[in-house]
Nucleic acid binder design. Structure first.
Lengths: 206, 206, 206, 206
DNA sequence: TATGAATGAGGTTTCATTCAT
DNA sequence: GATGAATGAAACCTCATTCAT
C-alpha cells in the first residue's frame, strides 16, 4: 500500500530491481511500447531518477539485458551428443516465459542501436557458436563425426532449433526438446552412434 | 522533384508501389519507427490518402506483408534430401536483403496485433512445416529415415537453420546454405546413410 | 441491398431525402460530430455530390433546418388560455424524438454561423414570441389579464416551459404538458379566472 | 511576450488559471472548436502539461465546469414570491457574459459524454428543481397556492424563464428579470393574490 | 451530373527528456 | 540524490474540401 520512499539507486538491490522491471516490461509490451514511465511506475520511482543512472532509454534496456548474462563452462564429456545436451540444457536454464518477448525486443532494438545489436548476439550465443564450435571441433578430432556431415552447420543446429521453437512455435524450449535434438538428430549424425546403435541393436534382439 | 499529382490508388501499379514502399520502410526502420508519414512521403502521397485505403498503420503493414505471399508446390522427388533442397531453395527465392528487417518487424508487430501474428507464422512457414511434414512422412514411408531419427524435429530443421542464419548470423540464407544443410545434415540423416554408416562401421573395426 | 445508382439531386425527392438525412445526423451525433461523410453514406451519395448542391457543411445544415419550417395561423379564440393552448399544441406538432438533438445542434452551430443563429431563433420562435405577443396583447385589451401580471414575461411562458422540458428534463414536450401549462399556469393568471376562482371560492365554503 | 517558465500546475493559482482559461475558451468558441492547443496557448503551457493533469479534452472541460459549482442555502422566507426571488437572484449571481456559451457547450458536450451530461444537469439545476420543489411544497402547505395552480409546473417556472432569456433572448438573465418573474408571475399565482384579486374584482364590477 | 479518390490542415494523444525543488 | 512536473517533437487519425473522370 504505502509506496516505497526514496530508496537510492545506489542500493544494489534497488538497482537490480529496476533492471528486472525493465526486462519484464520489455518482455511484456515489446520494444515499441516499452517506455520509461512503465518502468518507473513499476518500481515506484520517478522517470527523472532513472535518467540519473541511465542516460537514455536505450542505455537502460542495454543494461537490463547485460545483467545475469552468464556463460556456461565449456563441456567436455567426450561425447558430442552429451556435450550438446549440456549446452542445450544450460540454455534451457536461462529460458523462461519472458524469453520470447525479450529476444524479440532485442531484435527490434538492435535495429536502432549498435550496442543492443551486440547484446542480442551475445544473448543468442550464450553457450552458443563459440562453445558449440569447440565442441564440434573436438568431436571431429575424436573421429566422432560422420565424414559427410557439415561441421559448420552442425554447430548451429541446437541454437537454430532452440530459436525456431521459441520464435516460430512460440513455446519456450525445454529439456525435452534438447533431448530430442540430442538423441534424435545429433546422435544419428555422430559416428560413434553407429557403434552405439549397433551395440544397442545387438543388445536388443535376443 | 516535381511531385506526382493525384495518381489514384486504384491504379494497381500505384497500389503496389505503396505496399512496396511500406515493406521497404518496415525493413529499413523497424516496426517501432515505422509510420505513415514515412510511407506517404516515399510515395508522394498524403497520409490521408493512405488512410483511405488502409484504416490503420497495422492494416497497411498487414497488407504490405500479405502481398506476394505464395506457397510452393509440394515437392515429391522420391528423395528426402532433394525434397528438402527444393523447399529450401524456394524459401531462398523469397529472400532478399529486406527479409531480415521484415521478419523482425513482423515479430515485433505480432506482439500487438493478432493478424500480424498470424501473418508472421504464415510467412515463417511458407513451404515450411506443413510441407516439410509431408515430405518427412513420405520419406519415413519409403524407409528412408534412420530409425533413431526424430521425425518431428527433422521437419523443422531447414526452417530452423534458415531462421538462424537470417536472425543470428545476419546473412540472408542462400542456395549454398541450403545445399550444405541438405547434403551435410539431411543427407547423413537419411537411411541411405545407414548403409553408408554400416559400411563405415564395417570398415572401421578390424 | 443494391445501392441506388445515380439518382440526380435535381430530383426533388432525392433532394429532400438528403436534407432529412442531414437533420437526422445532426440530431443523432450533434454538431461536433456531424460531417459530410455521415450524410453522404446515409443517402448513398458521394460527398462531392453534396458539395455540388451545398457549398459548405454549414450551408447543408442551414438548408436542412430551413425545410418544413412552418408557422401556424395566429389563433384568436377569444380566450388567452385557448389561444396559448393552440400555439403550444402546434409546437408539439413540430416536435419529435429528434427535436432535442436538433435544437442543441442549432445552438452550437449558431455560435459559428450567423445564418444558423437566425435559423435557430426562427425555429425557437415558430409560433413563438411574435404570435404570443399578439395573443397576450389581445387578451390585455379584452381585460383578461390580471393587472399585476407582467405581460412581456407572460408571452415567453409557454416557450420557456417547452424549452425547459426539452433541454433540462430531456423529454419532448407533449400535449399533456401544454394542457398543464395552459390550465395550471396561464388559466390562473388570466382575469377570467378571478371570476371562476371567486365562484369556486363561493362554492367551497359552507 | 516573455513566456512564463515552468509554473507548476500544482500551484493552485496556476491550476485555477487553466480551468478559467478552459471555461473562457469553451464559452468563446463552443464545444466543437474547443481544443487543447487553444487552452495551452492561452495559459502559456504545453499541451502535454495539460494532458498530465487531465487525461482528455472531455476531462478538462468537465473539471473546468465542476469548479465554482455551488448551491445556495434553501430559502425559507415564509413567502413563495420571496423564496423564488432568492433562488432566482442566486442564479443571477452565477451568471455572466460567458454563461450562455458555457451552457451551450455543456449541452453539446453532453451528447458525447455521460459525465458532461450529468454536469449540465447539475449546472442547470443549481438552486433549481430540488430547492424549487421544496419551496413550492412549503408554499402549498402554507395554503399560499391558488388551488388550480399546477405545482409541478410552477417549480420549473423560474428556471424555464431563466433558460429562455439566456438561450433564446440571448441576454444573461439579471435581477430585473427575476423581479419581473417574481412579482409579475409568481406573485399573481400565489393564494394571497386570490384575495387581492377578489378585492379587485369587487372593485371592478359596478 | 455524379462520383471515387486525393489531400492540407488540423486535433488528440504519447513519450523521451529536462527542470526545479 | 530523488522526485514531481513541464515540455517539444512527433505519431496517429479525421474531415472539409477539391480534382479528375
Amino acid at each position: 500500500m504505502a509506496s516505497r520512499k526514496k530508496v537510492p539507486l545506489s542500493d544494489p538491490d534497488r538497482y537490480r530491481e529496476v533492471l528486472t522491471a525493465a526486462r519484464a516490461v520489455l518482455a511484456e509490451v515489446g520494444y515499441e511500447r516499452f517506455n520509461m514511465d512503465l518502468v518507473a511506475r513499476r518500481v515506484q520511482a520517478s522517470k527523472a531518477t532513472l535518467y540519473q543512472r541511465w542516460p537514455s532509454k536505450a542505455a537502460l534496456i542495454i543494461d537490463a539485458i547485460h545483467t545475469y548474462q552468464a556463460r556456461p563452462d565449456c563441456p567436455d564429456t567426450g561425447s558430442l551428443v552429451e556435450d550438446f545436451r549440456f549446452l542445450g540444457r544450460w540454455a534451457v536454464t536461462q529460458t523462461n516465459a519472458d524469453t520470447r518477448g525479450l529476444v524479440i525486443g532485442l531484435l527490434e532494438g538492435s535495429r536502432r542501436d549498435e550496442e543492443l545489436a551486440r547484446l542480442y548476439l551475445e544473448r543468442m550465443q550464450q553457450g552458443g557458436p563459440d562453445l558449440a564450435q569447440l565442441v564440434v571441433q573436438r568431436a571431429a578430432e575424436r573421429g566422432e563425426l560422420a565424414p559427410e556431415v557439415d561441421a559448420e552447420i552442425l554447430q548451429d543446429l541446437i541454437g537454430a532449433l532452440y530459436l525456431f521453437q521459441l520464435l516460430v512455435r512460440g513455446v519456450p524450449p525445454d529439456e525435452q526438446l534438447i533431448d530430442r535434438v540430442a538423441d534424435g538428430i545429433i546422435g544419428p549424425l555422430s559416428a560413434k552412434r553407429a557403434t552405439t546403435a549397433a551395440q544397442q541393436t545387438q543388445g536388443n534382439p535376443p
